[in-house]
Design a protein around this nucleic acid. Sequence first.
DNA 1: TTAATAATAAGAATCGTTATCAATTTTATA
DNA 2: TATAAAATTGATAACGATTCTTATTATTAA
Lengths: 128, 128
Amino acid sequence: MKRNSSIRREKIAEALGRTRSHPTAEWIYDQVKQEIPDLSLGTVYRNLKILVEEGRARVIHAEDGKDHFDAHVEAHHHLICKQCGKVVDYYTSEETGLAQRIETDTGFLIDSDGLKLSGFCKDCKPKA
Amino acid sequence: MKRNSSIRREKIAEALGRTRSHPTAEWIYDQVKQEIPDLSLGTVYRNLKILVEEGRARVIHAEDGKDHFDAHVEAHHHLICKQCGKVVDYYTSEETGLAQRIETDTGFLIDSDGLKLSGFCKDCKPKA
DNA sequence: TTAATAATAAGAATCGTTATCAATTTTATA
DNA sequence: TATAAAATTGATAACGATTCTTATTATTAA
């Protein structure tokens, strides 16, 4: 299936690439709509899905029930705050030992970007 | 707020406790309905929520967009298959070093049960 | 140009979940 | 006991996020 890349799709990809905030479809819609006023939310969803299929973006199923998107596809992990829903990048290679052990133990092949760690972020952490 | 524990709630907790398969509300509904035919799905959701509040169950927001429940609340982690959606328990304390380093690095406080690792399970793993 | 394909907006439909509500059951208290 | 208050329920409406449908327009290929 040949696939063109439409102007809208590229604008969506750009908006997503411009931020490190792991936005939702809605946020991207609001952004791109400023440039393309007749953009529809369905188009955003459809194109985000295509970008993910093409490996140009990742989805994070966050704790807030919404899908968050990330154009930074290099291996890194995500810290997800249970309280405010914030998603923060975390880069480390320290988990490779863990991933290897898991594969030996269970047969599960862990993605190099498959770590999601939930807890409480700096701001939401109960002060001691 | 004093809280009684109804028969239905206990049956729901039992059904959940009986399995290690991290079922959805729907699955639990189907199970308990065999014993209590006039059970309603809303009751299942309502009671699962209460069980989670009481610390008698955990929720896992899985990759399939559904909430999965787990009555085994001792610290353990979850391996989630991207392909078939299966959720498998993983017990380790090896991540405490990682969790500690993350807290130092980022201020994020990682739950002792906050690890979700996604990848491919034994069966869905691309054969080499 | 013509025909086929791709992309679109708008909105309906679906899905998992939560909230509402009136009726019933359970518990507390007089 | 009686009776008021609180908890629980089934049914169903409502909800928010996402997907699907339809009709239309734009792009590409022949």
